Amino acid sequence: MADDPALAPPDDALRGRFARALEAARAPAGPDAPDPAPYADNLLARWREPQRRYHTLAHLTAVLDHVDTLEPYAADPDVVRLAAWFHDAVYLPDRSENEERSARLAERALPEAGVSAAKTAEVARLVRLTVGHDPADEDRDGQVLCDADLAILAAPPSAYAAYTAAVREEYHFVPNDAFRAGRSAVLRQLLELPRLFRTPYGVEHWEATARYNIGAELELLSN
């Protein structure tokens, strides 16, 4: 459950996961289909940029693992996996348009990598959906990606504390009072959602724990 850097697999394992998702999404691919490796390497380099403390390869790996768990609920799980790779590929903590820039990166890279226009558009749509994590009831792929991205909220207490500390490190340039106010607003917005998780698995296994963790964090922030 925790996005622990020690749990991130070697690059070769991640390259393999990206290649399988890309090849499935662009199937049937012709003999001249581009090699997935350069695209994987570009994304891996992005995910290990030095300004990241939470949005790291460990987070990417955790989201991919959660997508694997939630695969039965997805309409096109390999498109969801590609969206997971791109969803925080552009990440600067002091910028507000990271999801949009990540979506645009997918819109540039995936057609070049051999993915159809329709599937590229779906990946980009899913990436943009992570701004608010509020997929429609009929949006199966959106529900899977959003649940996978938010699963850290249901981590055990020590892992949740490590997650919140890493988020604070990413926003080290924000004064304490401003950070507490901004973080509290984000958490309250999440609690106002009818459900944090939309897949049956997420509702059963993650919802109650996540709401408890968020409530406890809000109490700490208010002190």
Rank of each mutant, 00 (worst) to 15 (best):
R198Y: 02
H172Y: 10
A6P: 09
E49H: 15
N213H: 06
R211E: 08
V131A: 11
E49R: 15
D76Y: 03
A113C: 08
P36I: 05
D35C: 08
N213T: 03
A24D: 04
D137A: 13
F197H: 08
E192A: 14
R188L: 09
A106M: 00
Q51W: 09
R195H: 11
Y54K: 14
R53N: 15
D94L: 05
V167K: 10
R168V: 04
G30H: 00
A106G: 02
L150H: 06
R108N: 06
P10M: 11
Y160S: 01
A165I: 05
A8W: 03
R188F: 01
A216M: 09
H66L: 01
N42D: 15
V131Q: 13
V144W: 03
A45F: 14
L92A: 09
A118S: 11
L190R: 06
D88M: 02
T56F: 08
L126Q: 03
P31W: 02
F18Q: 01
Y212S: 08
P156Y: 10
L105F: 06
Y201P: 00
E217A: 09
Y39L: 13
M1K: 04
D177N: 09
A165C: 10
P194H: 07
A113G: 07
L44I: 09
V174S: 08
A121H: 04
G142K: 01
E207H: 11
W85A: 00
A124E: 04
A74G: 02
D76R: 13
V167F: 02
V79N: 10
I214G: 02
P38W: 07
D41V: 02
P10Y: 12
R125G: 06
N223E: 07
L43S: 06
L153W: 11
A58R: 08
P200V: 03
R20C: 04
G182E: 06
D11A: 15
L82N: 04
A58I: 14
G16T: 12
L60N: 10
